[in-house]
């Protein structure tokens, strides 16, 4: 049974459709990458999945025990967050709120869940550090731990590597891959990084207000649209394949996540 079934969903702002007639399915264990240019409706579709924006027509159905509020969301960071005075434990714990309802305080189970996820992501020793003192890669790990606290089955990642250096980027992708394989967490990633999408994703949804392509990654790379998009972006600056970037790593570059 699919976790999410999206049928002919259309989302509009003030009467103008930002996403038109999109249909896809996400099954347990999938890694769906939603790709497309700026303004192609990726963010709107994501808000729709999170239940923050209601579809004008069409439906989004949740199955397999997934609630709309049970999605682990990794948002893009805002400027205000980067210097926020909260420690890592406080931020990670806030992911447990979805299961709190109106109860005001966390239980010891909530706390142990937060500790477990910090352990998994290798940030347990940062638990009492202030969020604003961490590197970009470490901050992403903290937010990922928070997202894991909010879900058992599905992570929704919004441009997870935006603003990270190549080392931290490769590191984060490895981490996501580990979470998916070892914990069986399904992943939806919204990204500009088409190379990574093809490398890690099991399915691709290519958006341009409507959906240009939806299918498996293998089908995508051999389709005309996929082939064109891939060759267009390979040589563009900033989109070099991750592996090459990693090999450029200088001896003195510190592991951005602080984890060996």
């Amino acid at each position: 049974m699919p976790l999410i079934t999206c049928r002919n969903a259309t989302f509009a702002y003030e009467g103008i459709a930002a996403v038109r007639d999109v249909s896809f399915e996400v099954t347990r264990g999938d890694f769906l990458c939603i790709v497309g240019e700026n303004g192609s409706g990726k963010s709107t579709l994501m808000k729709g999945l999170l239940g923050l924006h209601a579809p004008q027509s069409g439906t989004i159905e949740f199955g397999g025990g997934l609630r709309p509020t049970g999605i682990g969301y990794l948002p893009q960071q805002s400027a205000a967050q980067k210097d926020f005075p909260a420690n890592v434990r406080e931020v990670v714990l806030s992911g447990r709120l979805s299961s709190r309802g109106l109860r005001p305080f966390y239980t010891s189970f909530d706390r142990s869940e937060a500790e477990r996820h910090m352990e998994e992501l290798g940030i347990a020793r940062l638990a009492n550090r202030s969020y604003r003192e961490l590197s970009g890669g470490q901050q992403q790990r903290v937010l990922l731990a928070r997202a894991l606290c909010a879900t058992e089955s599905l992570l929704l990642l919004d441009e997870p590597v935006a603003g990270l250096d190549p080392v931290a980027t490769a590191d984060l992708y490895r981490l996501i891959e580990t979470i998916r394989k070892e914990q069986g967490v399904t992943i939806i990633m919204v990204s500009h990084d088409i190379r990574a999408a093809v490398q890690y994703g099991s399915h691709i949804l290519h958006m341009h207000t409507t959906q240009l392509f939806y299918g498996t990654t293998a089908e995508y790379t051999s389709s005309p649209i996929g082939a064109r998009f891939l060759t267009d972006t390979v040589h563009a600056p900033g989109n070099a394949p991750i592996k090459e970037n990693v090999s450029e790593k200088k001896g003195g570059v510190e592991n951005a996540c602080g984890i060996g």
Binding site: L50, L52, T69, Y73, Q81
Partner: peptide, 11 residues
């Protein structure tokens, strides 16, 4: 800390 995340988790 994060209004969008809070909304997404049903707060």
């Amino acid at each position: 800390f994060d209004e969008t995340f809070a909304r997404a988790t049903g707060v």
